[in-house]
Structure formats: C-alpha cells, structure tokens
Computed example of a mutant assay.
Amino acid sequence: MSTDTVSAVHTMDRLLLGDNQFFGINHMSEERARAQAMRFQDTDSVVEVIEIALQEGLRTLMCTTHERIGDVCERVRDDASRFPGLRIYPCMPYAHKYANAVTEYGMLGALRSFVPDEGMLDAVVRGGRSVLRKEIEGLITLLIDAEMKMFHGLPTPVIFLQNVVVDLLLGLGFDEAFAVFDRHVRARYGAEPGFITMNLPLLLDRLDRIGIADPVVCANINALGFRMSGGMDAYERALAERSFRPVAMSVFASGAIAPRPALEWIHRHAEVESVVFGASSRSSIAGTVAIAKELWGTVTAPPS
C-alpha cells in the first residue's frame, strides 16, 4: 500500500472476539489458564472457535501477533469462504516472542532477528544515543512492518499497540513513539491506530499533549474497577469528559462478573464504543451475543 494513503474513520463493531483464551491467559485462575492452554495447543481448535463466533454473528477478531495467529491467517487466506466478513485487529507486539528471543540470542541478536535492515541497526549500535534518536522512527516502523507480515492480504482496519509497550513508553516519557506509530499505521496500512493501556487517564493526557485527537483506546473498564489503574473515579471522568473512542476489555473481570450485569453496566456508559471479550464455547459466545443484542440491538456496525 502506498505510504501516501491516509486512513478513514473505521466504525468498530459492538462486540469483538479476543484471543486470551487461546494462549492460556486468565487473570483470576491459573488452573483455568492451564486448561485453556492445553485445549488450544493446535491451530484447528483456535479456528473452530473463530468459525463459531462468525456463525453467531461476530465478525472481528482482536488478536496478538502470536505465531499461532500467523497459522490462523494462513487458513483464512487459503479458504476465505470459511471466514465470511472476518476482520482482524492486530495487537502488537507479542511480548513473549521478544522476551524469548532476548533470552536465546541476547539483546542485539534478538533485534537482528526481527529487524531486516542490519546496516541501520549496526549504525545505531556504533553511533550511540545521538544516532539512536535520529534512527528511532525507522527502527519502530521496521518492527511494525515485521509484525504485520502475517496479516498480508487480510483486512486490518484497526492496529493496536499492546499495553506492555504503551505503558513502558508512558513510564519512560517517550511520547513521540506514539506519534510514530500513529503516522506509520495510517500511512502504510490505511488503518486506524489503537492503543491498549492499563492506565487510561495518563495515556489520554499524553496523547492529547502530542496532538493525537479522538484516539481508539482499549483499557480495562468494568463494574468492579478490576485492574483499572488510576481508580474507578478517574475512568468514569475520562469516559464522561474526554474525547476518545473507548474499547472496553476485562468487562467480566476474568469471570468475577456475570455477563448480563457486566454488559448492562457497560451499556449505561454510552461512550464505550466496543467490548472485547474472550470465549471458547458456542454457548458462551451465543449467550454474550444475545445479551448484547438485547441491550444495543446489534453486535455489528454499519459499513464505514
């Protein structure tokens, strides 16, 4: 895609299928996480759940750049008729992939394994901090492109930066990296950039400061204040007063809130545009879809 392409506003669906359940991630129960990891050891089991979700009326998969998702993308490209209307929201990077590479190859070896332009990397290493400042935008964009390779040929209208990086950048005060991500995602992929965070109020302040208007931001938003860094009151004020497009995650607080009261609470916060949830069975997916349709009338959005 031409680097002159500018993304249009993409209307997100009300419900998005997440992928934590595929990779053994559960924030309340290690036992349940292990059981899920065992169940989804092969790509067939992951694909089966995605097909069920499509059959039940969902059409958006919000997923990490885990190697298994690369296998799923291959299946979708090879037999698109099995996945009608599927849209993917990549969330990058998959942090464990980089952590494992650092453990195996060391910091420089890991960077070389993910960044194809070794000349630029060598210049950064030789030149130190001044060269690093000059080349950092090129390095970030190369890493984005490396992460996006698995999705080639598939619709990816929103591309998210994972909270492990977003919150690290917040802590370092490296706000310009958000602007680099924003520009590259829009120009190279014609997509809307999204940001995942564990500290919604702080991120909104920083994005305002660098001029990113009305951003797509995914954060923990739920009735219990579960994992909502900064406190429930700060999140309530952000939803009511700030200009952004909220995507709520952890709405069920890892099973501590039943689906109906969880979604009813979200429904009372009309500012929330989308809900991402993980589910691994037809009954769970169908039940969540049914409640959402009662509350909002639909789980999908009209064409952008």
Rank of each mutant, 00 (worst) to 15 (best):
E48G: 07
P93V: 05
Q41S: 14
R75E: 06
P93W: 09
A37Q: 12
R32D: 10
L58D: 04
R68T: 13
A99D: 13
M38N: 11
A95E: 12
H27L: 05
E51Y: 03
L61S: 05
R32W: 05
D79R: 12
F22V: 05
L54P: 03
R77F: 05
Q55P: 06
E67R: 14
I50L: 15
A33I: 01
R75K: 11
I52K: 15
L86Q: 00
R87N: 09
G70L: 04
Q36M: 13
F83K: 01
A33R: 10
H27Q: 14
E56R: 15
A99P: 01
P90H: 03
M38V: 15
I69C: 07
T43L: 11
F23H: 00
A80V: 12
N26T: 02
E51R: 15
H66E: 01
Q36R: 13
R87A: 14
I52V: 15
G24Y: 02
A35T: 03
R34H: 10
M92Y: 02
A99F: 11
V46S: 07
I69G: 02
R59D: 12
R87S: 13
C73I: 04
V49L: 00
D44M: 10
F83R: 08
Q36A: 12
C73D: 02
Y98Q: 06
G85D: 01
V76A: 03
R87W: 03
K97D: 11
L61Y: 08
Q41C: 11
D44Y: 09
C63Q: 05
Q41N: 09
M62T: 03
R34K: 13
F40K: 04
Y98E: 03
A80D: 03
N100C: 00
C73E: 01
F22M: 05
M62A: 14
A37R: 14
D71N: 08
V72R: 06
T65C: 03
G70S: 02
K97C: 05
S45H: 15
S29Q: 08
A99I: 12
D79Y: 00
R39A: 14
R82Y: 04
V72S: 06
L61T: 02
E56G: 01
T43S: 13
L61D: 07
M28I: 04
A99C: 08
M92C: 06
E31K: 04
S29V: 05
M92H: 03
A80H: 06
L58R: 00
V46C: 12
